[in-house]
Simulated scan of single mutants.
Amino acid sequence: MPFTPLHLGVDACCKAIAPQRFSFMIFAGTQILMDLEPLFGMIYGWQYLHIITHNLLGASLIGCLAFLIGKPISEWVLQFILKYEDWRISWKTAAASALIGSYSHILLDAFMHHDVYFFYPWILKNPLSNLISYSALFYSCIFMAFIGTTIYLYQLKFKDKRT
Results as ranks from 00 to 15, higher is better:
residue 125 K to P: 02
residue 31 Q to T: 07
residue 34 M to N: 10
residue 71 K to S: 06
residue 12 A to I: 06
residue 36 L to E: 07
residue 39 L to M: 11
residue 63 G to F: 10
residue 119 F to I: 01
residue 116 V to D: 00
residue 95 A to K: 10
residue 121 P to H: 04
residue 153 L to K: 11
residue 145 A to D: 08
residue 103 Y to M: 11
residue 60 S to C: 12
residue 35 D to I: 03
residue 58 G to C: 01
residue 10 V to P: 00
residue 76 W to S: 13
residue 128 L to W: 00
residue 140 S to F: 11
residue 18 A to M: 12
residue 136 A to L: 13
residue 23 S to L: 02
residue 14 C to A: 08
residue 122 W to E: 05
residue 152 Y to S: 14
residue 113 H to Y: 03
residue 59 A to Q: 03
residue 94 A to P: 11
residue 61 L to H: 02
residue 43 I to L: 15
residue 89 I to P: 06
residue 154 Y to N: 14
residue 18 A to Y: 10
residue 37 E to Y: 05
residue 111 F to I: 02
residue 25 M to R: 07
residue 34 M to P: 09
residue 157 K to Y: 12
residue 52 I to E: 03
residue 102 S to P: 03
residue 119 F to P: 00
residue 119 F to L: 12
residue 64 C to V: 08
residue 113 H to E: 02
residue 160 D to T: 14
residue 162 R to M: 14
residue 148 G to M: 09
residue 139 Y to A: 10
residue 117 Y to I: 00
residue 29 G to N: 01
residue 150 T to Q: 07
residue 116 V to M: 02
residue 155 Q to C: 06
residue 30 T to H: 13
residue 125 K to Y: 10
residue 34 M to I: 08
residue 4 T to R: 05
residue 78 L to S: 15
residue 121 P to I: 06
residue 33 L to P: 04
residue 135 S to W: 12
residue 148 G to I: 11
residue 97 S to T: 10
residue 49 L to Q: 12
residue 104 S to H: 00
residue 84 Y to N: 15
residue 98 A to I: 04
residue 28 A to T: 13
residue 152 Y to W: 14
residue 65 L to I: 15
residue 98 A to R: 05
residue 79 Q to Y: 09
residue 53 T to H: 14
residue 46 W to T: 01
residue 122 W to N: 09
residue 106 I to T: 02
residue 146 F to G: 15
residue 123 I to A: 02
residue 104 S to E: 00
residue 7 H to Y: 04
residue 111 F to M: 03
residue 35 D to Y: 04
residue 71 K to M: 08
residue 1 M to E: 09
residue 107 L to G: 01
residue 64 C to D: 05
residue 86 D to V: 01
residue 50 H to V: 11
residue 132 I to Q: 09
residue 59 A to T: 03
residue 148 G to W: 07
